[in-house]
Design a protein around this nucleic acid. Sequence first.
DNA 1: CTAGTAAGTCGCACAGTACAACTAATATGC
DNA 2: GCATATTAGTTGTACTGTGCGACTTACTAG
Lengths: 244, 244
Amino acid sequence: MKRSAISRRDGDFPRPLTTVDVVIFSIRDGRLSVLLVKRPTDPGGPFPGRWALPGGFVDVGRDRDLESCAMRKLLEKTGVRSPYLEQLGSWGSARRDPRGWSATHVYFALISSAGVALQTGGNAREATWFAVSGQGVETRLAFDHREILAAATLRLRAKVEYTSLPVYLVEEPFTLSDLQRAYEVVLERPVNKAAFRTRLLSAGLVVSSGEFRGGKNRPAKLFRLAKKRAAPVFFPRTFSPREA
Amino acid sequence: MKRSAISRRDGDFPRPLTTVDVVIFSIRDGRLSVLLVKRPTDPGGPFPGRWALPGGFVDVGRDRDLESCAMRKLLEKTGVRSPYLEQLGSWGSARRDPRGWSATHVYFALISSAGVALQTGGNAREATWFAVSGQGVETRLAFDHREILAAATLRLRAKVEYTSLPVYLVEEPFTLSDLQRAYEVVLERPVNKAAFRTRLLSAGLVVSSGEFRGGKNRPAKLFRLAKKRAAPVFFPRTFSPREA
DNA sequence: CTAGTAAGTCGCACAGTACAACTAATATGC
DNA sequence: GCATATTAGTTGTACTGTGCGACTTACTAG
């Protein structure tokens, strides 16, 4: 009894399963989308054949910390090396995984549509982009991933109201209209053009590259991030259209 | 080889240690304070005698999920049953605990100074309130708790700029001046009285109890939360004093 | 040259806050 | 009783950043 207490204090508790999952957002075909992978179809494991967020067990031999574990999983699935990556939170309970008490550390990533090379051949699991409508996708997901995806979507929308996060969803160089469209795709509502431009330009976040992109109409100025790998900008107010 | 791969897919990875820590904030003697516990002094365990955030291993037999584990630890240390409790994030790496790869899920709680009964006798560890100055306390902490406390303090300050979180730091009933002082204690700067009152009263968050508290000077109206256990209110702007 | 369209600008309205100066209500000292 | 100190609470004006409609600009297609 005494012995067990001492031993427990030293960390000899039954250990929960520890995983990391990544909610990878991007814009595909003008829609906010999330990357999902198909779970193995052999009936041994949990949720065979069901779509799930990419993720898996922490590999204590390879992963220095949780974030590099998330980076590794992102790289394995998409080939992307330096996305915007933010911790979303953790979900842990006795019931979320049929194999036992488990806790997952969830990150969310924003990547532009360019430069993504989905790993689908060989041993890699099938991976596809799903359009996000409302707070989730139309497919049933494994584990509690529906709830996690809803939380990620809410967090993304909330932050897009007052931050520059969508710059990570467009490729450089981009026009202000490109960026505005990214905002509108995530928020699922139109944004006023003049207010949008004032806000972004006065933030000093982007700088004109001096070049223009011509199409059928008036050519548009091209912009880049003023500082590569800079932290996102926080604006002092949310976008909040007047209720008529 | 094949067998090991299958077994690993089923969750047979070496499992990291899984803990939950709670950053418990309150206002003591007019200062933002955090509750710390002293680690056991016997030299077997990590960081003997060092101050640390209250927390410990998830007990897969007792804890339904991470949040109830955090609630349990809060109750064990303070006797408080229904605080404001929010997930802060998770910290996990190979090095943060000398016993091995470990991941901790961190919550932060806000409680009022009343009704706290620190558990200090018997087998319970020594627990004390430490004033928070800047982003931390003046004592050296165990594990990576200094970093975690800094993150919690930053998050708290950031949210106090645009939410009603400090209502959880004062006891009911309270005057608007009480509440304003709580804001000022957390933000470590004065807040304009008129702007503060307009903001809070127009939010409909608090209602007058009809009573007054008299002191040496003009009696002040007493308020209570309009709805018990309501979610915090988000204001459309941050407090942002003009830079002179 | 005209029409169409997307890029980009302008001016004013508006909400919410910043701030200083004001009034109100109590206790205390004389 | 009356001035004084102190805290509670209000008023009026300025200011900032956004909402929004209407405007100008620059290009292509006919």
